[in-house]
Simulated scan of single mutants.
Amino acid sequence: MRWIERTWYRPLSLPALLLLPLAGLFALIAMLRRGLYRCGVLKVQHLPVPVVVVGNLTAGGAGKTPLTLHLAQQLAARGWHPGIVSRGYGGKSVTPLAVDAQTDPALCGDEPLLLARASGVPVFVCPDRFAAGQALLMALPDTDVILCDDGLQHYRLARDIELCVVDGARGFGNRLPLPAGPLREPVSRLDSADAVVVNGDGDMLRHERAFRMKLEAGRFYRLADRQVCEQAELSGKTLAAVCGIGNPARFFATLRELGLNFSEHPFPDHHAFAAGDLPDADLILVTEKDAVKLAALPGLGALGDKIRVLPVRARLEPDLAGWLEERIRHGCKAA
């Protein structure tokens, strides 16, 4: 998988050229599918509250989950009652499932569990996001806005606002469709999104509503007891950074910005960790997304005492949550 991604994010190469016929077929199917929803052949389902989709155009991580978390917390702080729905990628549940802090990540997936633990708002998962939204509203009828973590291409669920996240460092790679490149939809799809959020450094895209997101590191905490530990505790220790997110390089760069020296151990996005994946080191540094799976490993024991978790939080410029609230208050019309 890492080899494929390296092919995507470099100039046009021989492997990408060989995959062009499949990429053309993928693009055609994606275009036809979207067209069938737009003309009503495939039915779009509407929920009775505003739906905000947080998605992206590329395969892999771009920062959707931290943005969803940020918006959920910001809206709740402003008096709204948001809920979150997600496909639950990597989880086994095929029917709507309410996710709480004790849910097995094997059932719900890593990102929904992280959102349930960190956001303080209800989270439901199902491959059918509309069904997840229905279940959430039935269980919590006071919910007045739903955030869909991922799902830009899940057209069965009607959406009132689309937010498209772009990785500022990697951009759109070779700009080819899957599998020759990283694109799920063409870059022109940005034109129909309500706002674009550029995650990290990189050129701001020419869009009517463009926002910059930066992920700011918090304080490390111990996986075993969630007690905050000072960075000085890491001094003089052999450190290993283990990461199974869409773009591990972003996590490694954050650790380097903190002045840490460590060995890098990248894994595919949503990797199902086993104890044998963890390297021999004094301390092991992981993301919160990976931590929810590692904490569920049976028999982790003393190895778990070595794990330190680095939380990150999104900061948006200008105020995306304020803009979003105004859109919701005005019936989601352009504002």
Rank of each mutant, 00 (worst) to 15 (best):
D150Q: 02
F267R: 03
G218E: 01
T65C: 00
D191G: 08
F220K: 11
E257P: 00
G79I: 13
P15H: 00
V165M: 07
D319A: 00
H46A: 11
E233H: 06
A302N: 10
T65R: 01
F211I: 04
V123N: 10
L316D: 05
L97Y: 13
F251Y: 05
L283P: 00
A98T: 12
P318V: 09
R2N: 12
G276E: 15
L136T: 07
T7N: 11
D194E: 13
A210E: 12
I29F: 11
L22A: 14
A217N: 04
V121D: 08
A180I: 03
R256H: 02
A131R: 10
D104G: 01
L57S: 09
P177R: 07
F172H: 04
A193M: 04
P11Q: 11
E162L: 11
T58W: 01
T238R: 13
A59F: 15
N261P: 08
L324Q: 01
R6M: 11
P177I: 01
T143V: 15
C229F: 05
P82V: 01
H81M: 14
L300Y: 14
L67R: 02
L239N: 02
R159I: 04
A158M: 05
S235I: 14
V228M: 12
R327W: 13
L176K: 01
V125H: 03
E257V: 05
D100Q: 05
D160E: 14
V228R: 10
W80F: 14
S188A: 13
N199V: 02
L28Y: 07
S119Q: 05
L12D: 10
T95A: 14
A253P: 02
Y221Q: 04
R212E: 12
T254P: 01
Y37D: 08
R327L: 15
D225K: 00
Q227H: 14
K289N: 11
R222M: 13
G259D: 08
G90A: 06
L278P: 10
G181Q: 10
N247L: 10
P279H: 04
E230N: 13
Q74Y: 08
A139S: 00
F267C: 06
E208Q: 09
S13T: 12
V228D: 13
E288T: 07
D201M: 07
D282C: 10
V94T: 11
L260S: 04
G88A: 06
L303P: 04
